[in-house]
Amino acid sequence: MTETQESGWNRRDFIGGAALLALALGVPLAAVRMSSLDPADAPTEAQRGLLREVSQLVLPRTGTPGAGEVGVGDFVALALAHGLEKSRQPLDDNADPRLLRFRRGDGSLDHVTWLAAELERRAGMDFLMAASDARVAALTALDAEAFGPEAKTHPWRTLKALILTGYYTSEVGGAQELRFELVPGRFDPDLPLQPGDRAWSSDWTAVDFG
């Protein structure tokens, strides 16, 4: 995907997510179902930039492109608007006040605004303006807190789950970083596993059960 392709974003199109999907995921417009989303759910350019950068920090370029590079930021924005990973379930009234500040009209958490504020707080400045190692440090700290012993649910877990889904179901993540074989043709029940052997993204049961 090129930067030029990513630029065709406008709020009206986002109502159905149609333009975003067509551009970011390369699927035909006709395949996208329209729905009744609030245009206010469309992220700003700054938020898109943040999601792209955060995706890239979680899954950076190694031997294969990173998550930000393959459009995962936009996938996360759309997935949040549509409630994947239960991201539009209402917050409990007793939730952490730091989360309640970012409650949407429907009671759910505005994950993107929360994330921007959280990372800005940790970086001590606009996250995207911070130095590279400061960004890594801020996100690492947030990640450690979210998966710490006292955290049961955490909005970062939701965001991270969507970043993983976006990446490993992309062609780069599913077929370059991992291996993909839609028609294996046989079942080998016991093979040696060498260090560095890549997993099969087409092992649907493994994906389902994690």
Binding site: T62, T140, L164, A199, G210
Partner: peptide
């Protein structure tokens, strides 16, 4: 596989490499 990474701490190249196998 990779979906187990949803429940695990970590970011960056090492995390990505771990999910590769």
């Amino acid at each position: 596989t990779w979906s187990a990474g949803k429940r695990e701490a970590g970011i960056g190249a090492d995390y990505k490499d771990k999910l590769r196998s």
